[in-house]
Amino acid sequence: MRQKTDPLHAASKLLDFDDDRIARLIADRGWRELDEFDRIGAIYDFVRNEIAFGYNQADDIPASQVLSDGYGQCNTKGTLFMALLRGVGIRCRLHGFAIHKGLQRGVVPELVYPLTPKEILHSWVEIEFEHAWINLEGFILDDAFLNVLQASFPGTNSLCGYGVGTDCLSAPPVMWEGQDTYIQRTGIVQDFGVFETPDTFYETHGQSFGWLRGILYRHLIRHWMNARVRAFRSGRMKAHNGATHAHKEAANAT
Protein backbone atom coordinates (compact mmCIF):
# COMPACT_ATOMS: atom_id res chain seq x y z
CA MET A 1 0.00 0.00 0.00
CA ARG A 2 1.04 3.61 -0.59
CA GLN A 3 2.17 5.82 2.24
CA LYS A 4 -0.62 7.91 3.72
CA THR A 5 1.21 11.10 2.76
CA ASP A 6 0.21 10.37 -0.85
CA PRO A 7 -2.69 12.82 -1.47
CA LEU A 8 -4.51 10.23 -3.59
CA HIS A 9 -4.48 7.84 -0.68
CA ALA A 10 -5.22 10.27 2.15
CA ALA A 11 -8.36 10.75 4.22
CA SER A 12 -10.28 14.03 4.23
CA LYS A 13 -13.37 15.47 5.88
CA LEU A 14 -15.60 13.73 3.31
CA LEU A 15 -13.34 10.70 2.74
CA ASP A 16 -13.54 9.68 6.40
CA PHE A 17 -12.44 6.08 6.04
CA ASP A 18 -11.14 6.13 9.63
CA ASP A 19 -14.73 6.41 10.85
CA ASP A 20 -15.62 3.33 12.93
CA ARG A 21 -18.48 2.30 10.63
CA ILE A 22 -16.31 2.33 7.53
CA ALA A 23 -13.31 0.74 9.24
CA ARG A 24 -15.54 -2.03 10.60
CA LEU A 25 -17.11 -2.65 7.19
CA ILE A 26 -13.70 -2.98 5.55
CA ALA A 27 -12.52 -5.37 8.26
CA ASP A 28 -15.71 -7.44 8.29
CA ARG A 29 -15.67 -7.90 4.51
CA GLY A 30 -11.99 -8.84 4.49
CA TRP A 31 -11.33 -6.54 1.56
CA ARG A 32 -7.72 -5.85 2.50
CA GLU A 33 -6.89 -9.55 2.12
CA LEU A 34 -7.99 -9.66 -1.54
CA ASP A 35 -5.69 -9.06 -4.49
CA GLU A 36 -5.96 -5.64 -6.10
CA PHE A 37 -8.39 -6.59 -8.89
CA ASP A 38 -10.78 -8.37 -6.54
CA ARG A 39 -10.39 -5.68 -3.87
CA ILE A 40 -11.59 -3.04 -6.32
CA GLY A 41 -14.33 -5.30 -7.66
CA ALA A 42 -15.72 -6.21 -4.25
CA ILE A 43 -15.94 -2.56 -3.19
CA TYR A 44 -17.35 -1.53 -6.56
CA ASP A 45 -20.11 -4.16 -6.33
CA PHE A 46 -20.88 -3.16 -2.74
CA VAL A 47 -21.36 0.50 -3.68
CA ARG A 48 -23.28 -0.37 -6.85
CA ASN A 49 -25.78 -2.82 -5.37
CA GLU A 50 -25.74 -2.65 -1.57
CA ILE A 51 -25.96 1.14 -1.59
CA ALA A 52 -29.19 1.71 -3.51
CA PHE A 53 -29.66 4.48 -6.05
CA GLY A 54 -31.32 7.42 -4.30
CA TYR A 55 -30.95 11.06 -3.34
CA ASN A 56 -29.27 12.26 -0.15
CA GLN A 57 -29.77 15.65 1.47
CA ALA A 58 -26.69 17.13 -0.24
CA ASP A 59 -23.68 16.26 -2.39
CA ASP A 60 -21.06 17.29 0.16
CA ILE A 61 -21.80 14.77 2.90
CA PRO A 62 -19.10 12.45 4.30
CA ALA A 63 -18.75 8.85 3.22
CA SER A 64 -19.84 7.62 6.66
CA GLN A 65 -23.20 9.39 6.26
CA VAL A 66 -23.73 7.87 2.80
CA LEU A 67 -23.06 4.46 4.33
CA SER A 68 -25.56 5.17 7.13
CA ASP A 69 -28.17 6.42 4.64
CA GLY A 70 -27.77 3.21 2.62
CA TYR A 71 -28.45 5.01 -0.66
CA GLY A 72 -26.89 7.65 -2.89
CA GLN A 73 -26.48 9.14 -6.34
CA CYS A 74 -23.42 9.76 -8.52
CA ASN A 75 -21.70 12.22 -6.21
CA THR A 76 -22.49 10.70 -2.83
CA LYS A 77 -21.92 7.10 -3.89
CA GLY A 78 -18.67 8.32 -5.42
CA THR A 79 -17.57 9.77 -2.09
CA LEU A 80 -18.24 6.47 -0.33
CA PHE A 81 -16.53 4.54 -3.13
CA MET A 82 -13.41 6.72 -2.86
CA ALA A 83 -13.29 6.41 0.93
CA LEU A 84 -13.52 2.63 0.78
CA LEU A 85 -10.89 2.43 -1.97
CA ARG A 86 -8.44 4.64 -0.07
CA GLY A 87 -9.18 2.69 3.08
CA VAL A 88 -7.76 -0.42 1.40
CA GLY A 89 -4.85 1.29 -0.31
CA ILE A 90 -6.22 2.03 -3.80
CA ARG A 91 -5.22 5.41 -5.25
CA CYS A 92 -8.18 7.33 -6.62
CA ARG A 93 -9.34 10.79 -7.57
CA LEU A 94 -12.58 12.51 -8.58
CA HIS A 95 -13.43 13.79 -12.07
CA GLY A 96 -16.08 16.49 -11.98
CA PHE A 97 -18.67 17.37 -14.59
CA ALA A 98 -22.08 18.92 -15.14
CA ILE A 99 -24.87 16.92 -16.76
CA HIS A 100 -28.01 18.22 -18.44
CA LYS A 101 -31.04 18.05 -16.16
CA GLY A 102 -32.85 15.96 -18.77
CA LEU A 103 -30.95 12.96 -17.42
CA GLN A 104 -33.07 13.16 -14.26
CA ARG A 105 -36.38 13.46 -16.08
CA GLY A 106 -38.76 10.75 -14.98
CA VAL A 107 -37.20 10.60 -11.53
CA VAL A 108 -37.89 14.28 -10.91
CA PRO A 109 -41.69 14.75 -10.79
CA GLU A 110 -42.95 16.69 -13.81
CA LEU A 111 -44.62 19.21 -11.50
CA VAL A 112 -41.24 20.45 -10.22
CA TYR A 113 -39.04 19.60 -13.22
CA PRO A 114 -39.20 23.18 -14.64
CA LEU A 115 -37.80 24.46 -11.33
CA THR A 116 -34.65 22.34 -11.43
CA PRO A 117 -31.31 23.86 -12.51
CA LYS A 118 -30.50 23.41 -16.20
CA GLU A 119 -27.23 21.69 -15.30
CA ILE A 120 -26.64 19.28 -12.41
CA LEU A 121 -23.34 18.58 -10.71
CA HIS A 122 -21.94 15.16 -11.61
CA SER A 123 -18.78 13.16 -10.99
CA TRP A 124 -17.16 9.80 -11.47
CA VAL A 125 -14.22 8.13 -9.77
CA GLU A 126 -10.88 7.47 -11.43
CA ILE A 127 -8.68 4.75 -10.00
CA GLU A 128 -5.08 3.85 -10.70
CA PHE A 129 -4.94 0.22 -11.78
CA GLU A 130 -2.06 -1.54 -13.50
CA HIS A 131 -0.29 1.80 -14.17
CA ALA A 132 -3.31 3.36 -15.91
CA TRP A 133 -6.25 5.54 -14.88
CA ILE A 134 -9.65 3.84 -15.13
CA ASN A 135 -12.93 5.80 -15.22
CA LEU A 136 -15.63 4.30 -13.01
CA GLU A 137 -19.18 5.67 -13.24
CA GLY A 138 -21.24 2.49 -13.63
CA PHE A 139 -21.73 2.05 -9.87
CA ILE A 140 -24.45 4.72 -9.72
CA LEU A 141 -27.52 2.56 -10.49
CA ASP A 142 -28.17 -0.67 -8.63
CA ASP A 143 -29.03 -3.72 -10.72
CA ALA A 144 -32.63 -3.87 -9.53
CA PHE A 145 -33.34 -0.33 -10.72
CA LEU A 146 -31.40 -0.74 -13.98
CA ASN A 147 -33.17 -4.01 -14.78
CA VAL A 148 -36.57 -2.32 -14.51
CA LEU A 149 -35.48 0.43 -16.90
CA GLN A 150 -34.19 -2.11 -19.40
CA ALA A 151 -37.51 -3.96 -19.24
CA SER A 152 -39.41 -0.67 -19.58
CA PHE A 153 -37.56 0.37 -22.75
CA PRO A 154 -37.08 -2.85 -24.73
CA GLY A 155 -35.20 -2.39 -27.96
CA THR A 156 -33.98 1.05 -26.85
CA ASN A 157 -30.26 1.78 -26.80
CA SER A 158 -30.07 5.57 -26.45
CA LEU A 159 -31.72 6.77 -23.26
CA CYS A 160 -31.37 10.01 -21.34
CA GLY A 161 -33.65 10.05 -18.33
CA TYR A 162 -34.44 8.15 -15.13
CA GLY A 163 -30.82 8.61 -14.00
CA VAL A 164 -29.41 7.10 -17.20
CA GLY A 165 -27.38 8.65 -19.99
CA THR A 166 -26.24 5.89 -22.32
CA ASP A 167 -26.22 4.74 -25.94
CA CYS A 168 -26.28 1.05 -24.95
CA LEU A 169 -29.11 0.61 -22.44
CA SER A 170 -29.54 -3.09 -23.20
CA ALA A 171 -25.95 -3.85 -22.17
CA PRO A 172 -24.28 -0.82 -20.56
CA PRO A 173 -20.66 -1.20 -19.38
CA VAL A 174 -21.38 -1.25 -15.64
CA MET A 175 -19.55 -4.38 -14.47
CA TRP A 176 -16.04 -4.18 -13.01
CA GLU A 177 -13.76 -5.95 -15.48
CA GLY A 178 -10.64 -3.84 -15.10
CA GLN A 179 -11.88 -1.28 -17.63
CA ASP A 180 -13.94 1.93 -17.74
CA THR A 181 -17.58 1.73 -16.66
CA TYR A 182 -20.30 4.26 -17.55
CA ILE A 183 -24.03 4.84 -17.09
CA GLN A 184 -24.53 8.63 -17.31
CA ARG A 185 -21.77 9.64 -19.70
CA THR A 186 -23.94 10.86 -22.60
CA GLY A 187 -25.61 13.48 -20.41
CA ILE A 188 -22.36 15.38 -19.74
CA VAL A 189 -22.29 19.01 -20.89
CA GLN A 190 -19.29 20.40 -18.95
CA ASP A 191 -15.94 18.95 -17.83
CA PHE A 192 -14.46 20.48 -14.67
CA GLY A 193 -11.32 18.31 -14.56
CA VAL A 194 -9.88 16.10 -11.83
CA PHE A 195 -9.68 16.72 -8.08
CA GLU A 196 -7.74 14.96 -5.33
CA THR A 197 -10.78 14.94 -3.05
CA PRO A 198 -14.52 15.56 -3.32
CA ASP A 199 -14.04 18.22 -0.64
CA THR A 200 -12.12 20.40 -3.09
CA PHE A 201 -14.59 19.75 -5.90
CA TYR A 202 -17.63 20.84 -3.89
CA GLU A 203 -15.83 23.88 -2.48
CA THR A 204 -15.18 24.95 -6.09
CA HIS A 205 -18.35 23.75 -7.85
CA GLY A 206 -21.28 23.61 -5.45
CA GLN A 207 -24.72 22.84 -6.87
CA SER A 208 -26.61 26.11 -7.24
CA PHE A 209 -30.25 25.61 -6.22
CA GLY A 210 -30.87 28.96 -4.63
CA TRP A 211 -32.10 29.39 -1.05
CA LEU A 212 -35.76 28.48 -1.54
CA ARG A 213 -35.20 25.67 -4.02
CA GLY A 214 -32.47 24.29 -1.75
CA ILE A 215 -34.90 24.04 1.17
CA LEU A 216 -37.57 22.50 -1.04
CA TYR A 217 -35.10 19.95 -2.40
CA ARG A 218 -33.76 18.86 1.00
CA HIS A 219 -37.10 18.66 2.77
CA LEU A 220 -39.61 17.76 0.06
CA ILE A 221 -38.46 17.13 -3.50
CA ARG A 222 -35.72 14.57 -2.82
CA HIS A 223 -38.11 12.50 -0.70
CA TRP A 224 -40.59 12.59 -3.56
CA MET A 225 -37.81 11.54 -5.96
CA ASN A 226 -36.74 8.70 -3.66
CA ALA A 227 -40.32 7.48 -3.45
CA ARG A 228 -40.47 7.40 -7.24
CA VAL A 229 -37.16 5.52 -7.44
CA ARG A 230 -38.45 2.91 -4.98
CA ALA A 231 -41.69 2.63 -6.95
CA PHE A 232 -39.81 2.09 -10.23
CA ARG A 233 -37.50 -0.44 -8.62
CA SER A 234 -40.40 -2.45 -7.22
CA GLY A 235 -42.46 -2.26 -10.42
CA ARG A 236 -45.23 -0.23 -8.78
CA MET A 237 -44.61 2.69 -11.17
CA LYS A 238 -43.97 2.36 -14.88
CA ALA A 239 -41.45 4.38 -16.86
CA HIS A 240 -42.88 6.40 -19.75
CA ASN A 241 -41.69 8.17 -22.85
CA GLY A 242 -40.73 11.30 -20.95
CA ALA A 243 -37.22 9.94 -21.17
CA THR A 244 -37.43 10.17 -24.95
CA HIS A 245 -38.21 13.87 -24.65
CA ALA A 246 -35.36 14.23 -22.19
CA HIS A 247 -32.97 12.61 -24.66
CA LYS A 248 -33.92 15.15 -27.32
CA GLU A 249 -33.70 17.97 -24.79
CA ALA A 250 -30.19 16.98 -23.70
CA ALA A 251 -29.07 16.44 -27.31
CA ASN A 252 -30.26 19.93 -28.24
CA ALA A 253 -28.36 21.39 -25.28
CA THR A 254 -25.09 19.92 -26.49
Rank of each mutant, 00 (worst) to 15 (best):
T5I: 11
P7V: 13
L8Y: 15
L15N: 11
F17D: 03
D19R: 10
A23P: 02
L25D: 05
L25W: 01
L25N: 01
D35Q: 13
D35H: 09
E36I: 08
E36D: 13
F37C: 06
F37H: 15
R39C: 15
A42C: 07
Y44L: 03
N49P: 09
G54H: 08
G54Q: 05
I61W: 12
I61L: 14
P62C: 05
V66Y: 06
L67H: 09
Q73F: 09
Q73E: 08
T76M: 03
T79R: 06
F81P: 01
M82C: 12
R86S: 03
R93Y: 02
L94A: 15
H95K: 12
A98V: 04
G102C: 11
L103N: 01
Q104Y: 15
R105W: 10
V108K: 04
V108W: 05
P109K: 09
L111P: 05
Y113F: 15
L115D: 06
T116R: 12
W124V: 03
I127A: 07
L136A: 05
L136R: 02
E137G: 05
F139Y: 15
F139Q: 01
D143M: 07
L146H: 02
L149D: 00
G155S: 00
L159G: 00
V164G: 00
T166H: 03
D167E: 08
P172H: 02
W176P: 00
Q179L: 11
R185V: 07
F192E: 04
F195P: 08
F195Q: 04
D199V: 03
Y202R: 08
Y202D: 02
H205Y: 14
Q207M: 13
S208T: 13
G210P: 02
R213L: 07
L216A: 11
L216V: 08
W224Q: 08
V229C: 08
R230I: 07
R236H: 13
A239D: 12
N241P: 00
A243I: 01
H245T: 13
A251E: 14
N252W: 15
